[in-house]
Every structure is written in structure tokens, then in C-alpha cells.
Amino acid sequence: MTQITKHFFGEHQGQEVSLYTLTNKNGLRLCVTDYGCIITQLWVPDRNGELADIVLGFDELASYQAGHPFFGAIAGRCANRIGGGRFSLKGQEYQLACNEAPTGQHLHGGVRGFDKYVWRSEVDGDGILFSRVSADGEEGYPGELWVTHRIALTDDNRLVFDYSAHSDRTTVVNLTNHSYYNLSGQRQDICQHQLQINADFITPTDPATSLPTGEVLSVAGSAFDFRQATCLGEAMARRPDRDFDINYVLRRDSESLRFAAEVTEPNSGRVMRVLTNQPGVQLYNGFKLSNKHWEGKGGEIYRAFAGFCLEAQAFPDSIHQPHFCDVVLQPGETYQHRTEHHFSVIDGQE
């Protein structure tokens, strides 16, 4: 059974912030805080049993409070981008903050999204159950939204994310976790990682706005083709700026949890397999990390390609693309999202 301890992590706007440490029977260790449901550490063994922390982040709460590129945090009320921060529901127009400075779009819930609140928290079996009520009008979104987010670490080496929400008014909901992974244990950049994504199509974006064009294009013959395990660095070399920030349309199958992606780091032997009930996964390779100075854990400087994100979610800007996904939540309905990360190792020589 997973062992869980709770520690004082600091204060935020007069509220006490806690850090939970979860350790399973195999020694995997997860640290998560009730400030933004942020995963601060994730210690996973390599093929020799040596543990290393495979997520980017900070040692102190103050660094998260000072602002960061969503290291380990929940993104919501609506993850990813909403074009112009505008949408219409039931004949009423809503204007949200356009908080992504380079593009002028609404990003990951706005100026103070779900990542910048202290959530109620309690131990729940092999996980932590976080909850909060997002007020009607918070960041411009309609409806009072009751949200729960459970993060668990199981004895069979699964990191499990469960999200649930319901609202008293018609609103927009799309939640995800925004961890940056580096399966080498942050000993090198991510270019040697082998990536497979279970998708034949992407939703391409306009470079000027970072918004989907509305098209659904095949990955065949492009740098975006990860249908077979592909060296991430080799794929990046096919992009003019070595950049990846793109939504993949996951293949549909009969399983409630579909295989989304698998990542292998050949030197350590660590493998992360992602399953989800969501229709898409956003691949981001951290190419913008060098735009600012990020001093991470132990004084490590996080530069471009220090980590990658695989964000299981609905497609970006779906509220403006009816053929994408339904991100509208009606009163009486329940939003349910489950994503699992399975950790293992492969045999081989260092």
C-alpha cells in the first residue's frame, strides 16, 4: 500500500500550503502540493534500480508563486488556447483574459487559472483528493464549477490523474496536468528519448496565432509522424526551429482508456506509457524554455528541450471548431477525465 506523509510547504495569501509525499512498495516516490495540484518531484528507478527525479520544477514554493511555465500544475478551467479569449454560449458572449503575450490568446485558464489556487486536500487511499469551487465569473468563465482532482500512485507503478467537475450553468471545461518529463533524470536534454504517439492525424496551427486552423491533417511523411517509436531529436531536426507544440488526434478504440503515447529513454531504460479517455494529446518539447531564465531544482538551469509535455485533453480552441471536441459542460452533466502514466524499464546496457 502506498505510504503518504504530509509536510508544511509554505503559505499563499494567508493559506497554509502542504506538500504530500507518496511512496509505493517499489520505491517510486511522488511529491505533490495543494498549491495548483503541482507535482514537484517524481522519483522513478532506472534499469539498475537507481532512482532519479524525472519532472522539472523547483525546490521552494516561492519559485512557483513567482510564475513559471506550468511546471507540474493543473491547467484549467480550460486548458490550452481559446482564440481571442472570446466565445459564445446560449447567445451570450464571454470575454476572457488574453494572457499569452506572444499570441494574444487565452491560455490555460487565464491570469489566475486553477494552477494559482490552494486546493482543499485530503488523503484518499493511495492518492490525494484535491477539490475547490470555481466561482461564477472567475477569469470570465460562466457558472459555479465544483471540481475534484485526484492524483494517485499505485503499487503497480501507475501515476493516475482523475478529474471530475459539474456546474450550475452552461460553461466550458478542459482539464489536464502540465508536467515536464525527462526520463534521463534531467542528466541531459530530451533529444535521445524515443517517442511513439498513437495518432494518425494532427490539428495543425497557424504559426502567427498558435491556434488550430481547423484542418485535420495526416502525419504521414512529416516530422510529426510518431506512429512508430522515433528518436525525438531526429524528428526535431526536421523542424525549422526544432519546435513541437501540437495536438494529436488519438486513434479511437473500444477501450475506456486508450493508448496515447509511450516514451523510452534508452540510456536509463526508463519507459513511460500514457493511457487516457481523452480524445487528444498535446506534445510540447519545451522549445520556449530558453525564452526566460528558469533556475530549477538544485540550481539546475532549465533551457530549451530540458523536458517534454504530453498533455491529455480535448483539442485546443474546440469552442470555435465544432468538428473538434465538445468542451461545453451543461448543468446536470459531469465532466470526467482519467489519464494514467505507467512506468517500467527495458533491458539493455548503459
Rank of each mutant, 00 (worst) to 15 (best):
Q3K: 14
F8T: 00
F9K: 03
E16H: 07
L19F: 08
K25Q: 14
K25L: 04
L28M: 15
T33K: 07
G36I: 02
G36R: 00
I38Q: 01
L42D: 01
L42V: 05
A52L: 04
E60Y: 12
S63E: 13
G67E: 02
A75M: 12
R77S: 05
C78M: 09
G91S: 03
Y94M: 04
N99Q: 10
G104L: 06
G109D: 06
G110H: 11
V111F: 04
K116F: 14
Y117E: 09
Y117W: 15
G125D: 01
G125W: 08
A135F: 07
E138W: 09
G143E: 03
G143T: 06
W146K: 14
V160E: 07
T170I: 13
V172T: 03
Y181L: 11
N182Q: 05
I190W: 04
V216P: 07
F224Y: 15
T230F: 05
C231G: 09
G233S: 06
R239K: 14
D241N: 11
R242I: 08
F244H: 04
Y248R: 07
V249C: 15
R251W: 00
S256E: 13
S256T: 14
V263W: 01
N267W: 07
N267T: 14
V274T: 14
K288M: 12
E295K: 11
G296Q: 07
K297M: 12
A304E: 06
F324Y: 15
P331L: 03
T334K: 10
Q336H: 15
Q336V: 13
H337I: 07
F343I: 02
D347F: 02
D347C: 09
